[in-house]
Design a protein around this nucleic acid. Sequence first.
DNA 1: GTGATTGCAAATCTTTTGCACTAAA
DNA 2: TTTAGTGCAAAAGATTTGCAATCAC
Lengths: 145, 145
Amino acid sequence: MVDKFVSSASRPFGPSLERLRAAGLRPTRQRLALAKLLFNGIDCHISAEALHEEAEAAGIRVSLATVYNTLHQFTAVGLMREIVVDSQRSYFDTNVSDHHHFFHESTSRLQDIPAEDVRVARLPAPPAGARVKRIDVIVRLEEKE
Amino acid sequence: MVDKFVSSASRPFGPSLERLRAAGLRPTRQRLALAKLLFNGIDCHISAEALHEEAEAAGIRVSLATVYNTLHQFTAVGLMREIVVDSQRSYFDTNVSDHHHFFHESTSRLQDIPAEDVRVARLPAPPAGARVKRIDVIVRLEEKE
DNA sequence: GTGATTGCAAATCTTTTGCACTAAA
DNA sequence: TTTAGTGCAAAAGATTTGCAATCAC
């Protein structure tokens, strides 16, 4: 088995492999396959169930438990982040840069709002002993009539 | 906001009964008891499970299913609102005025931020066909050091 | 009385866990 | 070989549902 890819010129598995290696995650078949689905250059917001279905549709054999594990691992190492908009289901976002979201409640679809497009001003100081970890702005949308 | 207690002398069941009637909800024993726990003048953020425990501690006999029903009914008629901060558990807020939240992740505790203390500026226009239903700002806090 | 409301237990749904098995290093 | 990672099925929580019993009006 080839265990070293010396140059980026020959990347039979694409950049996903290096991405996982750089994050300290062992590049297993399942992680590589999911990474390829997720980090294809298009920012995506997805639930575990949806990713599992997408994987099956792509002919990738992964268990749902592994999809959950993988999404949480990717989140833990900063490759993704979790978005909390629905108390029944978790969504994960491949865009880890500072930004916010529109949430279409009727379709449960998420859409990015660049950080520059929102200014959160005059925020009171956090209570003593606490530090701001992140500010989430969720603009909930409903259908117009 | 506190003027509801002014003429409580003439209201044998307190303001809860009228509050329910005004909302078009039949004032059953369970709804009245939960309303009294919830609308005591202090804004509170609570989960269904926690309210159920609080009710039991107060000697009120209510099933958890009824607590869920009641919280959703109160929310539907505008007496409360749901706050989504944790994908595993729902929180309900007795403060239905426009405001935002600090969320202490280590303790799962919520704290109000008055609307005046946050300015969300330069928000892009919502996509066509959609209307802004609400803007939620959640300031996630972690413990310092 | 009549229809709304409740309790209870079972069902559902999402997410996690335990453990034997497989695969990366 | 050695240990991390995986699948599977079962478990765990949170929430909902179905239906007979009960309550408000």
